[in-house]
Design a protein around this nucleic acid. Structure first.
Lengths: 200, 200, 200, 200
DNA sequence: TTGTAAACGAGACGGTACGTCTCGTCTTAAT
DNA sequence: ATTAAGACGAGACGTACCGTCTCGTTTACAA
């Protein structure tokens, strides 16, 4: 391990680092497979083979740990960005379909709900969730909106966040409250309506 | 009693009804004024001057009690329905402004966040929240959409829930994640864009 | 029942009396068959098919009910008195053997232990137990001791209670603390030693 | 504490040991000053400044805790043994007088009654009480009886437990059921009679 | 007969203690 | 010196009984 950390100091794997990684993985796994109230610091520590004190030394509470874990996961999953074929509707449709697919995955569904719970309960965690989980997504959309705006496809007076919300909020809302079936067709319709609203 | 109950059927009668009312009020008050994790069954019972067993006799868990309390409050607040002046944009703008105002009230904000937490944590409570809190709202919008549809102001192929989400979801999303300022101007813009999207 | 009460008006069997009898029987039965902490007022009421208020209307607490029940049972069992053949040792031996036999009966064992618990916990109940359960026994022994004293078989300066305790206490002690086997042989030895101690 | 732990490193005074001691002391104090039903695990934990879980971690129920506390107290009180002046009656009289004095102390009276209650309610605790509280006393008497037996002062065929019961049971019985005044005179008389019974 | 009043069964009520669980801190022993 | 392990104080959980209180209903006696 010493050799390893000397060779690649940007990816140290000391005892501490192993503990950190184990904790993040355990949090993700438990949040994905258990009802959220059972995702306790105790359970995470046990699953990770890590002392509870080690968790509290690094994260002030479960929410921070979870946000960190999800951010870590998203960073690893390396969002590839939004396609740009010139056809805004088609591009957004593709994106929303993959969003819908993700939300249909029970693990990710549970994880995201856990994240929302923490964000709702504590304003500070809410800010962290926004910054580390949603902001990157918004930034990706902002890039595509910039192109579309330059091509005169959308109203220049609509901000990036507003446009993002126009597209994402209905899906998020339906996912969260289960007001109806959340499938590709719904995503397609949302994009269609959003683009009509955004048209110059 | 007969006269009484005929005149004011909502008036509580007997120890049981008094306990029920006290519990609902206490739940509302605590959820409005304390961080949600401190809104425990114990605290609600103490505040209501009610035994814990009485709470558990009526509601299987805190979530059910909270949903009941909010539904009760909403029923009492007697939603007046959505205005119908013939001008859809103006009517929806008025409604969204009052929604924004409500969400700005710290008490209602806290209450609604608590409700969302419960809905996210437990699917069953989620269904209850949808049915008892959101469905009535959707129904009000549906009435107004029906008129607008009849007047040829909105696309007949868009369902009530979809139209509702188009209008409400962005506001809900911004409220929940604090992606930006949530004021009348934002509500107005959301309505404007939604109506463009809904136009035939 | 009408016939019954008309025939024997001195033993009316109205609802009240039936409730009283049912409560006493239920208390005896439960105390005999369940661990004492499970012999709750709730359980007695349920077993007796009687409202809890009816119990509390007649007896201030479980202890009083239990004492009443045991006294009632003893009255019914109609202690026949201590035999008097002229041979004190033989008479007491016979009595102690039957005492040992009674204590060996699991039901009566449990009942008597419950009684002792109540007596130990509350001085008032202790007095009631003494008066209603033990005093009658002491009186029976006192009669036999009087005869023996008159016959010059025991020391006239020893009081009835003291003599009673000399005979009963060792058995009671062994029964209560299980310091050793409690059988006829032990009872016989106790009587032998007691009579030596009591001899003039 | 430093000195203490340096002198007796085998008796560390970490958090655990402090909790244990505090619990035992609190149990003794509460049992001595409150009616037994109020000596709850909750009250003991509060008085000891200890979590309830800590109590249940060490003792399965209140009875075990109480027995441990009394045994602990007795060990500390270091029974000095029964005097041996050669005069059995005198020696036993002295012992019984101190027993009577102890039983007259309200604190010890309450404690011992609590112990008896637990012993009566649960056979397991009864065995524990016998072994840890009464057995040591019996052993002390056995030593004295051995001497007396060797001196030909008592019948060699009477066992230690039987002799012990002959002496102690009447006092215990009178204390428990309050069949009469329990004073030195009574103790003296009991010893006198017991020694007559035990004489060869 | 037909009220009327008491006692009844049933069981909900406000409480309290139960024994269990998780929290976040602190101690210990072993790397 | 930092870790895994886990005991600790605190306090909420959901349950069981407490002793009291409302309920209608049933019974017993008076009109």
């Amino acid at each position: 391990m010493d050799d390893d950390s000397r060779d690649r100091p940007s990816a140290p794997v000391g005892r501490s680092e192993r503990a950190r990684t184990a904790a993040l993985s355990a949090a993700l796994a438990l949040a994905a497979e258990l009802p959220y109230p059972q995702v306790t610091m105790e359970a995470i520590a046990a699953r990770a083979g890590v002392g509870k004190a080690t968790l509290y030394r690094r994260w002030p509470h479960r929410g921070a740990l979870l946000v960190d874990a999800v951010a870590h996961r998203n960073a690893a999953a390396a969002g590839s960005g939004i396609p740009d074929t010139g056809d805004l509707v088609a591009d957004l449709t593709a994106v929303l379909r993959s969003v819908v697919d993700e939300l249909a995955d029970p693990g990710w569904d549970a994880l995201l709900r856990a994240l929302c719970v923490e964000a709702l309960v504590d304003t500070g965690i809410g800010a962290q969730v926004l910054e580390q989980v949603f902001a990157p997504q918004i930034a990706l959309f902002a890039d595509r909106f910039a192109t579309a705006r330059a091509a005169g496809q959308i109203d220049g007076s609509v901000g990036d966040v507003e446009a993002f919300e126009l597209v994402i909020a209905p899906v998020f809302h339906r996912w969260q409250l289960r007001t109806g079936v959340l499938d590709h067709a719904y995503g397609d319709a949302v994009v269609r309506r959003a683009c009509r609203a955004l048209a110059p």
